[in-house]
Design a protein around this nucleic acid. Structure first.
Length: 276
DNA sequence: AGCTCTTCCTGAAAGC
DNA sequence: TGCTTTCAGGAAGAGC
């Protein structure tokens, strides 16, 4: 499941490989995968890929043509991938869209998504701004410690859902939320507004460290994450709690990792992550 | 505001 | 072995 680090790896590879290339064709295999702007497909022909950005877990490609800029935004959902054609050839099913650039096989990008929790959007400048404003809060790698703690302390609920709330902090999903909370020594159900200032600051730094390290590793390939070039991320080997129910706590505290019931897989150490 | 439940969807894994 | 059932999960929306 691509989260911020995986999306960042995807954006970087596309940026390196395809920036400046001209679109020959935008092929869409199933119309319902394009959630917004389906009728704008023809515009993209002959446009050039100008830049690639990441918002939370989404990847936004900016195309330029005749002084105008439009965007193709990809939400990967759980199982979505953007793959260069040479890689996608191994995954013939579930390719819902293809972006064909001038220059042959190495310059084709395919959107693969078997479960289709995810979509594509074709947006103009205003559409992109609205999309970003509505859905994405602060980027954890760009936000200052002051903004981060201010955003957090005014909230009332539990810590883990807040950390995964895209409108507040954008890009963190279940895997990294679990890893961050363990490393910060904070319980998933800790009350956000009762965190000590030192805990909030620790959370800020741990979040950035975990995400930065994960990006440097190329992300986590937990089930089926592949970068556009087919590479797998290696950060999974540094996971301390995710998917490790019953195993001894990596801090050697003597407790075993638990999984909270009635909730989407929260993995934590009951001794190292106290609720207070 | 925040919490829980439901929906979307497919393939892997578990159950019989 | 082969069929059926369950489950996982990001995000959005409904209802409380």
């Amino acid at each position: 499941m691509p989260e911020l680090p995986e999306a960042e790896v995807v954006a970087r590879q596309i940026r390196a490989q395809l920036t400046g290339c001209r679109v020959r064709e935008l092929w869409v295999g199933r119309a319902d995968i394009v959630r917004q702007g389906y009728d704008w497909r023809p515009w993209y022909v002959d446009a050039r890929l100008d830049s690639v950005a990441r918002y939370g877990k989404s990847i936004a490609m900016a195309f330029a043509k005749g002084g105008e800029t439009r965007y193709l935004v990809a939400e990967l959902g759980m199982t979505g991938l953007l793959l260069f054609a040479s890689v996608a050839i191994k995954l013939p099913q579930h390719i819902h869209a293809r972006l064909v650039f001038d220059g042959g096989k190495e310059t084709e990008l395919r959107y693969w998504n078997p479960r289709r929790f995810g979509c594509l959007r074709l947006l103009d400048q205003g559409g992109l701004e609205q999309y970003v404003r509505k859905r994405f809060g602060s980027d954890p790698l760009a936000v200052t410690i002051e903004d981060f703690t201010a955003r957090i302390q005014e909230r009332r609920g539990r810590l883990k859902p807040l950390l995964m709330r895209q409108q507040v902090i954008a890009g963190i999903g279940n895997i990294y939320a679990n890893e961050i909370l363990f490393r910060a020594g904070l319980h998933p159900h800790a009350r956000v507004n009762r965190l000590a200032p030192s805990s909030r600051e620790r959370l800020y730094h741990v979040t950035r460290t975990v995400l930065t390290e994960a990006i440097a590793c190329g992300g986590s390939s937990v089930r089926d994450f592949f970068a556009p070039d087919g590479g797998e991320g290696s950060y999974k080997q540094y996971h301390l709690v995710y998917g490790k129910t019953g195993q001894p706590c990596p801090n050697r505290c003597g407790a075993t990792i638990r999984r909270l019931k009635g909730e989407r897989s929260s993995f934590y150490c009951p001794r190292c992550q106290r609720r207070r």
